[in-house]
Every structure is written in structure tokens, then in C-alpha cells.
């Protein structure tokens, strides 16, 4: 049984009833906000208590790396450490220890834990647009844009945009702007 009832997002009043009653709700009974609810069986399903890990029975028995008094159940698929039932983090049919799980998410080794990526193509695009708007600064901004393009060409790309295409187009534009800007400054220097 869930400890938290479903609540109205406006006033946090509890929305009572089974799946058919929740699906039939049109207004919150407390604040009268217009609501539509799509409820699923997991709302009333108890996920089960977490495993605590069994104590070691015999001397010499393999023990958990983090809990020496608990029996090892599985090894970590990333680092090989022995893990008890409590430390075992199962994900996508693999077992990880808490340390590998955290570092895997931060370093992008475990794809399903990856939380963010930097859009280097957007940064380069902003630099190129800045060069167009503030063309006297193109001599400075365009080389920076080109440098960033080369530096991050093989960085993890965006999941939704074609990063390399955008980087390539921005690099070409930056090169053209740099040439135009350099030509302008050179001709200005010569005329002076």
C-alpha cells in the first residue's frame, strides 16, 4: 500500500478512490481546479521492502566489500567488488556497487544514468552569431569558435540535434567571417 495518496497539484488535497474513481475526476474536491487523472495499477502497489543482506555464517565466507559482516551475493560488473544484497544496485540486468553507479552516471559510462551533456555546438553558434552582430570582434570570436569546434568535435554529441553538422556549418561560417574580418582590418590598416 502506498504511504502517499495521489494529491491535487494545486492545493495538495488528497484525491481518494480507486482507479475508476480517479479517472472520473473532473475537479479537485478542495480547490475546484479542473483536473484530469490517468491512474495506473502501480499507484496501489507496494514495491516491497528493501533487502538488508544476510550475515556471514562461516569464517572465510566471501563477505561484502562495504559490509564485512554480510554475505556477498554478487560481484560488481564494473569493478568486481563483492556486494551484499543491500549494496547490490541492479540496473538493466547488470549489478553495480554504489560507487561505480555514481561515477558511471557522472562520467557517462552508464548510459541510462547520464543526466546532462554540454551543447558545444550551441556555444560555437552563439560565438559565430556574435561575430556577425559585432563584426569588429570577429577577429577574436571566430578563432575561439574554431578552437572550440576542434576541441569538442569528438565530445559526446547532443541526443536530439545533429551536433557534428552544426559544428561543421559553424566552423565554415567562422572561417569565412574570420577571412572577411581580417581582410577588412588589413585594408583599413593599409588605407591609413
Amino acid at each position: 500500500m502506498n504511504a502517499r495518496p495521489l494529491a491535487c497539484p494545486r492545493c495538495q488535497a488528497a484525491l481518494a478512490g480507486g482507479l475508476p474513481e480517479l479517472s472520473a475526476i473532473q475537479r479537485c474536491p478542495a480547490c475546484a481546479a479542473e483536473l484530469e487523472v490517468a491512474a495506473f495499477p502501480a499507484l496501489f502497489h507496494f514495491a516491497g521492502q528493501g533487502r538488508a543482506g544476510e550475515a556471514t555464517q562461516a569464517e572465510g565466507e566471501a563477505a561484502c566489500f562495504y559490509h564485512p559482516g554480510k554475505r556477498a551475493a554478487v560481484p560488481c560488473d564494473a569493478c568486481g567488488k563483492f556486494l551484499c544484497a543491500l549494496c547490490d544496485m541492479e540496473m538493466a540486468d547488470k549489478h553495480y556497487c554504489p560507487t561505480c553507479l555514481e561515477s558511471g552516471g557522472k562520467k557517462g559510462k552508464i548510459k541510462t544514468l547520464e543526466r546532462s551533456r554540454t551543447r558545444h555546438d550551441s556555444i560555437v553558434l552563439c560565438l559565430v552569431l556574435g561575430s556577425v552582430l559585432f563584426w569588429p570582434l570577429a577577429v577574436v570570436l571566430c578563432p575561439v569558435a574554431l578552437g572550440l569546434t576542434m576541441r569538442h568535435w569528438n565530445s559526446p554529441p547532443s541526443l536530439v540535434a545533429n551536433t557534428k553538422l552544426r559544428l561543421g556549418i559553424c566552423a565554415v561560417l567562422a572561417a569565412l567571417l574570420l577571412c572577411a574580418s581580417a581582410a577588412f582590418w588589413i585594408s583599413l590598416a593599409r588605407s591609413n
Binding site: 502506498n2 491535487c8 497539484p9 483536473l35 502501480a42 499507484l43 546532462s116 551533456r117 551543447r119
Partner: peptide, 29 residues
């Protein structure tokens, strides 16, 4: 699972919601 990709400025942020964990979707006008 459902993957939500959020583009904020120069970053992309990801959230995953596994179908088995979804209890309800609530729309408030």
C-alpha cells in the same frame, strides 16, 4: 521508459521515468 530531454541554454538534461514506476499522470488546467 520515457526519456525527457530538456534543452536549457548550453546544456541538455535528461530524465528517465520507467513505465513500471509511473503511478499517475495528472493534468491541471
Amino acid at each position: 521508459h520515457l526519456l525527457v530531454v530538456r534543452e536549457e541554454g548550453f546544456h541538455e538534461r535528461y530524465r528517465r521515468f520507467f513505465h513500471r514506476d509511473v503511478q499517475a499522470l495528472v493534468i491541471s488546467r
